[in-house]
């Protein structure tokens, strides 16, 4: 028989931030308490069974108005996969033009269905402000 244990979370569903206590025996959730609404229980269960996160970062881009293209994950990945996802994105680069939503990498870190997508359109610019000929000497 597995001993009864508990996990503590702070609910992020709304700004109240209810302190949640989840009681479990092994993988079996016994109860969740501390929440002021149903979303708290749901959040704690998700955190306990399969905590997922998403993040945004940038990749280098050439030929655009700035040197970085913002990218995001199309869906959350298991929290443990973040370092691998980040490492994979670090190897990417892009060349303008890029369209909003364009997929730069499929199934990032081996997570099926989670892609790395461009968060904005970046047109190709011929002269960027930083190498404006009028300023060169």
């Amino acid at each position: 028989m597995t001993a009864r244990q508990e996990q503590h979370y702070v609910c992020i569903s709304c700004p109240i931030g209810c302190p949640l206590r989840l009681v479990h025996e092994g993988d079996q959730i016994i109860e969740v308490e501390g929440q002021e609404c149903n979303r708290g229980a749901k959040y704690a269960r998700q955190e306990f069974t399969d905590p997922r996160r998403t993040f945004s970062t940038t990749v280098p881009i050439t030929g655009a108005v700035y040197g970085r293209l913002p990218v995001k994950l199309s869906a959350p990945v298991p929290r443990q996969a973040i370092p691998a996802a980040m490492a994979a994105i670090r190897l990417l680069s892009a060349e303008a033009p890029v369209r909003l939503g364009q997929v730069l990498l499929r199934d990032v870190a081996g997570v099926a269905g989670v892609d790395v997508v461009a968060c904005r359109t970046m047109d190709r610019v011929m002269i960027t402000p930083s190498d404006d000929p009028s300023s060169a000497t």
Binding site: Q80, P83, L91
Partner: peptide, 16 residues
């Protein structure tokens, strides 16, 4: 390492 490789880098200094 090929992009999308799930194992590389994951063990080192996991930020989580």
């Amino acid at each position: 390492m090929s992009a999308g490789d799930t194992t590389a880098g994951a063990g080192e200094e996991a930020p989580c």
